[in-house]
Amino acid sequence: MNRPHRPCYRRTVEASGVQTVARALSVLDCFRGGEERGVSEVARRQGLAVSTTHRLLAALVQAGFLEKDSESSRYRMGGALAEYGQIAYRQHRIYLAEPFLEQLANTTGASASVATRHGIHAVLLGTSRWRETDGHELQGVRLPLHASALGKALLAWSTVTDDELHTLPYEEGTERSVSGPAELREELTATRERGHAYNDEELDPGFRTIGLPLIDPEGRCRFALGLRGPTTLMIPERVPFFVELAKVTAAEIAAKFATPGNISVRE
Rank of each mutant, 00 (worst) to 15 (best):
H5C: 12
V18M: 09
T20L: 14
V27L: 14
L28K: 02
E36I: 00
E36H: 05
G38T: 11
V39D: 01
E41F: 01
Q46V: 01
S51A: 15
H54Y: 14
A59V: 13
F65E: 04
E67Y: 03
Y75G: 02
M77P: 00
M77A: 14
A80T: 09
L81K: 08
Q86T: 00
I87G: 04
L96W: 01
P99H: 10
F100M: 08
Q103H: 08
A105W: 13
S111P: 00
V114K: 03
V114Y: 01
V123F: 00
S128R: 07
R129Y: 12
R129V: 11
W130D: 04
R131I: 00
S148P: 11
A156D: 09
D163Y: 04
L165D: 06
E172Q: 12
T174S: 10
T174E: 07
E175N: 07
R176F: 12
P181T: 10
E183Y: 08
T189S: 14
R194V: 09
Y198G: 13
E202S: 12
L203H: 06
R220S: 05
G229L: 08
P230D: 05
T232F: 14
L233N: 08
M234Q: 05
I235R: 12
R238E: 08
V239R: 06
F241V: 11
F242Q: 02
L245N: 02
K247D: 04
A250M: 11
T259E: 15
V265I: 15
